[in-house]
Amino acid sequence: MGEVIVVTSGKGGVGKTTTTANIGTGLAKLNKKVVLIDTDIGLRNLDVVMGLENRIVYNLVDVIEGNCKVKQAMIKDKRYDTLFLLPAAQTKDKTSVTPEQMKELADELKKEYDYVIMDCPAGIEQGFKNAIAGADRALVVTTPEVSAVRDADRIIGLLEANLIEKTHLVVNRLRPDMVKRGDMMSADDVIDILAVDLIGVVPDDESIVVATNNGEPLAGDNSLAGQAYMNICHRIIGENVPFLDLDSKKGLISTLAGVFKKK
């Protein structure tokens, strides 16, 4: 029996979709069978981040409404045979599906897949309720900013209220140089405030932008962000890996090394 993970944040633009794409890619790299579900109906984006936007025939709402079989709507990843995407509908809205329907779908999919990962829309309304309905665990993504941390706190409260007990925090877009200067909260500061367990710290990394431009998630490559995402995947499958040393100097050098290796 697989596990259903919801990637959520409350605030928009903190990196839910990027995190979903990279964790899916990383878990597939670890030979897990993974399906990513874009639950952001009306504002789908996971397809472009994955580079699969040209292959969409059916979507989540088609599956729920019974217009097609689940298998028909699944899009296989370009690079990994065990990675699939179930895209959101673009012309419908969040009320097209109910939490009960989403739970039913998640329960069905986790029989066949090791991981079912829900990319949750921003906000705490219907879309959020749909995304968390069938979840066994949650990854809360935040950046080290007051607005994102505040929303993360609200989300953690709502997850608790919905009896999702395994909740972990991803601190995204951290800038070690700014933390050193005292101009950005550290990951420790954030977990101190939110009182949840940390599962990964992802540095602010230009290679994320490049990877999104190309539609190829970078989990597992030489970039710092790629390594950070891969480490999160190892922790998801239960391995104990030390946290990356995000010291700014080292960061710059290994980022450069990553660029040269690529070429």
């Binding site: 933390v179 200067r181 101009d183 909260m185």
Partner: peptide, 19 residues
């Protein structure tokens, strides 16, 4: 105070009433 300390303090306060 560094701005990250200011951020922490403000967050702690606002979260008390949020929670």
């Amino acid at each position: 105070k560094s701005s990250s300390d200011v951020a922490k303090d403000r967050l702690k306060l606002v979260l008390v009433s949020d929670r």
